[in-house]
Amino acid sequence: MTAAPPPALDGRVTVVAAEGRGAGPRPLVLVLPGGGYRMTAAHEGEPVARWLAGLGVHAVVLRYPVAPEGSTGPLHPAPLDAARAAVRWVRAGGTGLDVDPARVGVLGFSAGGHLAATLSTVGDEDADARPDATVLCYPVVSLEAEAHEGSVEALLGQHADDAARAALSADRRVSGSTPPAFVWHTGDDGAVPVSNAVRYAQALWLAGVSAELHVYPTGRHGLGLADDAPHVATWTTACAEWLTGLGWR
């Protein structure tokens, strides 16, 4: 039976059921669109959920809290609180779908990728909210080195200090408990440097966690499924194969 989302998620979740699903529980992926923590991009939400559904994977799009343009106060921890609540709601059966609670993943784009990576690196006190697999698409990762300053300001407010930046730099938060990840970026991304993706993959490798990293030579930021960039669009095939390797398809 479907359970109403908790107040933190009211009006923020869209559930898309897997297509052609057979008997038995299916994995589910939480989709976090990008938007610099100022908005959530439509093309990185439901279209991505429908792609996952076509792979036989349930999906939930979360439109997490964002900071309106012109706001100066810190947004954190509202997005992370919403993401943790969403994973717990999914694992508790809130979607009404037959979900395997041990196969709940997260997929994020840009600032949504930062939220996905932050969610994936929560401590053991939040183990029930930590996903089992992570997909990061041109993610913001570091809030220190080659940071996307727009995301930093939206998330932490103006004049964030070094300690606050370090605490939410996902590459610093990785541990042996962090789930495996599929990460992709483009080498000439003019908004979020590719070093962000590399830093996260390197941190996983150093922690002994499996990571698959794809860097495409060229492509603008915000491509989503990359329908208008055929070479980069192969990320969806590679990701589907990675999910198959995890036993999610």
Rank of each mutant, 00 (worst) to 15 (best):
P5M: 09
P6G: 08
P6L: 04
P7T: 09
V13H: 03
T14H: 12
V15Q: 14
V16D: 08
A23W: 10
R26A: 15
L28C: 10
P33H: 04
G34P: 01
Y37K: 12
R38H: 13
M39K: 15
T40C: 14
L52H: 00
A53I: 05
H58C: 04
V61S: 06
L62N: 01
R63V: 05
R63G: 08
V66S: 02
G70P: 02
G73N: 09
G73Q: 12
P74A: 09
P74E: 06
A78R: 15
A78V: 08
P79A: 02
D81G: 07
A85R: 05
V87D: 03
V87I: 11
A92R: 11
A92D: 09
G93V: 02
G93E: 02
T95P: 02
L97G: 02
V106L: 04
V106K: 03
G108T: 00
G108R: 00
A111K: 04
E125H: 13
D126Y: 11
D128F: 00
A129W: 05
Y138L: 08
P139K: 06
V140G: 05
E144W: 07
E144K: 12
L155H: 05
L156T: 07
Q158T: 12
A160P: 08
D161T: 09
D162H: 13
A164N: 09
R172K: 09
R173T: 03
R173P: 03
R173L: 13
R173G: 06
S175N: 13
S175A: 10
S177P: 10
P180K: 11
W184P: 01
H185W: 01
D188W: 03
D189Q: 08
G190T: 11
A191Q: 13
P193Y: 13
S195V: 13
S195R: 13
V198E: 11
V198K: 07
Y200F: 15
W205L: 12
L206R: 15
A207I: 05
G208C: 05
A211C: 07
L213T: 00
V215W: 08
Y216S: 04
P217M: 06
T218S: 15
R220M: 15
H221F: 03
G224D: 01
A226R: 01
D228Y: 10
D228L: 10
P230A: 10
P230W: 12
H231R: 15
A233E: 05
T234L: 14
T237S: 11
C239P: 07
A240Q: 09
E241P: 09
L246K: 02
L246S: 00
G247Y: 00
